[in-house]
Amino acid sequence: MSEPTAPEGRREWPLWEVFVRSKRGLSHGHVGSLHAADPEMALRMARDVYTRRQEGVSIWVVEAASITASSPDEKDPFFDPAADKVYRHPTFYDLPEGVEHL
């Protein structure tokens, strides 16, 4: 599908995905998306839209077009094979006697 055409200089701003790390968080989590002209503006817009209530101490923005995502069509081959491998979870194993603090 081709992009809708617009007069030169009047195109929509690109879409950015926003990731915020909260004060106690160890990693950035996806919080939403927004439109902005360039990365610096996207950061500022993200600050205004997504951290108004002290949600974060660090922001990443990534142009949505740069993200490679798994396809819903590949869901079965991608994820189903893990469904019957219970031994990949720590709960599968019995603790030997005498192990404390677990």
Binding site: W13, L34, H35, A36, M45, D48, V49, R52
Partner: peptide, 8 residues
């Protein structure tokens, strides 16, 4: 002009 700027 844009929702984001509205909030800003």
């Amino acid at each position: 002009p844009e929702l984001e700027e509205d909030v800003a």
